[in-house]
Write a protein that binds this DNA or RNA. Structure first.
Length: 406
DNA sequence: TCTTATT
């Protein structure tokens, strides 16, 4: 670049200092240029910012003493696009007050990250912007920016504390629901039906939020009778309980005890939730929805779940939602887990799909491999390599079952 | 992802 020309165009330069590391004498890739007047500096910045200089794109921004800025006038920006342009951002934010700086964070290699900081001169300006975005969100290059006031470490820690409190709270609720279901099921099966229940456990799926249970009966006959009932009704009559009944059962049997002897929750802790639910027409313990299924183990030797299928040969880039949509057309999917094949050479996915009933799975199996159904064939091409789903064999399934259940 | 290569 011709220096004389630059000076003429951009105003007189007072000083140029290139920063070097004190020890290594290596350039830090940073320079300070002082112009004789503010306008020249601003003009130069607009002209040279983001220009390629020799081989690097240079970023030109005004200097200010960041030790003296008001942190209350600082805004944290998330969700920035890859090609965020801070001059454009600055222009946009300047509509609400005097912007001191806009910084887009970068990693060590210089790659732009999708967050940054906006520094106003006064906190009033920052507040003006925050107020404004409540009703008028701001987008940058088509992406909605998420703006929050800057929080220092202690504020973030305080929030984190709040979150863990909430989380803990949620865990208690989940645990009480699982235990509630367990008592309802056991009570009905043993007291009402007179079945001999060997084992029962209930979990609420953390992803789908749906409860599911595994009940093991003493005899095949009991298991089969209950299974038939489930298949016919698509739910079990014992689900016709309610939250009032659940809290009574918990009071009767007491809260569950953890392996270390402590109790998972106190009745006082969970009573409000059950009382609240009792007022709700959608009380999940009324059994009015079918987000529940039975997994009946006939005996210890044959533990393969008849509702579980492992499908392989799924293309790498197919999402869980796509798989779910595809598999749901054959029957009600209770849970779906996707995973990469263990062999790293094979770059395909597999999924574990749990249907609500054996009938659903049978239907899925027959339709999945039906080579005459044109609609399915077309869909298969989108999801599976060469359009061919592969079902895992029972032997393999058995070895995986422990993983799925765990 | 709540900072900053600051004469």
């Amino acid at each position: 670049m011709d220096e004389d020309q630059t000076q003429q165009e951009e105003g007189e330069i007072q000083s140029v200092k290139i920063k070097k590391d004190k020890l290594t004498k290596q350039s830090k890739g940073q320079a300070f240029i002082t112009f004789r007047n503010r306008d020249s500096a601003e003009q130069a910045r607009k002209k040279f910012n983001n220009q390629v200089f020799i081989e690097n794109k240079i970023r030109v921004k005004p200097y200010f003493n960041f030790h003296k800025v008001d942190k209350k006038a600082n805004i944290f920006i998330r969700n920035l696009p890859e090609d965020a342009d801070y001059l454009e951002l600055e222009q946009e934010f300047s509509r609400f007050g005097k912007v001191l700086s806009v910084d887009v964070h970068r990693d060590q290699s210089g790659k732009q990250l999708n967050y940054g900081y906006l520094q106003y001169e006064t906190k009033e300006d920052a507040e003006k912007l925050m107020k404004r975005i409540l009703n008028h969100p701001i987008t940058h290059k088509g992406k909605l920016m998420k703006l929050e006031k800057f929080k220092d470490l202690s504020e973030r820690k305080a929030n984190q504390h709040l979150f863990t409190q909430e989380h803990l709270h949620l865990n208690i609720v989940v645990r009480s629901f699982e235990y509630g279901w367990l008592l309802v099921i056991k009570d009905y099966l043993t007291r009402v039906q007179g079945d001999q229940v060997m084992d029962c456990f209930v979990r609420i799926d953390s992803v789908t939020k749906q409860p599911w249970a595994i009940v093991t009966f003493e005899t095949y006959k009991e298991a089969k009778a209950n299974l038939d009932k489930c298949e016919a009704l698509r739910k079990h009559p014992c689900f016709n309980s309610n939250s009032q009944k659940v809290i009574e059962l918990i009071k009767k049997y007491g809260p569950p005890v953890n392996s270390d002897g402590s109790i998972s929750f106190t009745i006082e802790q969970i009573t409000p939730f059950f009382e609240e639910m009792n007022k709700d027409p959608h009380d999940i313990f009324k059994g009015e929805n079918d987000n529940f299924f039975f997994n009946l183990a006939y005996n210890n030797l044959l533990k393969i779940d008849e509702r579980l299928m492992v499908i392989q040969n799924i293309k790498k880039d197919v999402t869980k939602d796509q798989i779910l949509e595809f598999l749901s057309q054959f029957g009600r999917v209770i849970s779906l887990k996707i995973g990469k094949t263990k062999n790293s050479r094979i770059q395909f996915q597999q999924c574990f799909v749990h249907y609500q009933t054996m009938q659903d799975l049978k239907r899925a199996r027959s339709e999945l491999f039906d080579d005459k159904n044109e609609k399915t064939i077309k869909q298969r091409k989108e999801i599976f390599k060469d359009g061919h789903p592969v079902e895992s064999t029972k032997k393999k399934l058995q070895s995986w079952q422990s993983i799925v259940q765990g």
